[in-house]
Design a protein around this nucleic acid. Sequence first.
DNA 1: TATTTATTTATATTTATTATAAATAAGATT
DNA 2: AATCTTATTTATAATAAATATAAATAAATA
Lengths: 145, 145
Amino acid sequence: MSSSYASLTSALKQAGLRLTPQRLAICRFLAESREHPTAAMIYEHLRPEYPSLSAMTVYNTLKALVELGQVNALGDCGDDNVHYDADTSPHINLACISCHRIMDLPAPQIEALDGEISRASGYQLLGARLMFYGLCPDCQKTRVL
Amino acid sequence: MSSSYASLTSALKQAGLRLTPQRLAICRFLAESREHPTAAMIYEHLRPEYPSLSAMTVYNTLKALVELGQVNALGDCGDDNVHYDADTSPHINLACISCHRIMDLPAPQIEALDGEISRASGYQLLGARLMFYGLCPDCQKTRVL
DNA sequence: TATTTATTTATATTTATTATAAATAAGATT
DNA sequence: AATCTTATTTATAATAAATATAAATAAATA
């Protein structure tokens, strides 16, 4: 379950940032897409609608959303790109090493794990990334390798 | 528990790669250090001993070890650097967001999780990265922020 | 020892991201 | 509404990690 468009935009507003058309479009795409897009994907997707859009604006907006805790940057997806995930609730990311699709899985076990980890380590836990890698059902059929 | 020096070097040898002094030194450092070093850290650490060492050799050796499954590249450690982990057995990485130390934790729960995930998703699972973020015991005391 | 092949090194190149500064747009003030 | 102030966007330049290339070196083989 992704952060909604409303929660992304209201977080920007509460931080004193203006809700410009560019920022709103980036939020809309993040909230609606289930693709864990990269900065480049967001830029290319929005360019037809906003021909003057600059990549810098995409980077800036993503950085703001990450700092506000509304979006996670995933750096370990198996390709070499940073993907953005508007779902900041505890869950598992499953990346296909062949087609590089990323899907989300609920993981109620995480809460229990969290407790065990902080007890065992003394760390005060603030977040997690649970990335699993494998072949998705489609690529298991298609791929010979 | 890290891959031993012996397993790193024998994996290189079995792959038909020569055990040069540079490669052996990189393996030794990976096996002995518990610091999850970056390529730059390895390079700087070995330079006094190997003044002619080139960064390219470090990158090449790490790439070979990663491709042989002897070392994991961790791209999501909270700083913006790729850290290398010679422990490829299933475990949890715990990164301190203040001092950027990374520690390992055993996680016998992972095997069960693995089964649940492949059943729920249809993915054929091949690996995982379990990164948790927080404040280590030292930084909880030290930091005011 | 000469020859072949792998490896290392030095250098150049690439590419994602960040920094900078001018241009633009929005909000506030009068 | 017009002006002033500030934020934002854009275009461009700069940065830095990683990769590619090619010459130099070292190792293995004959």
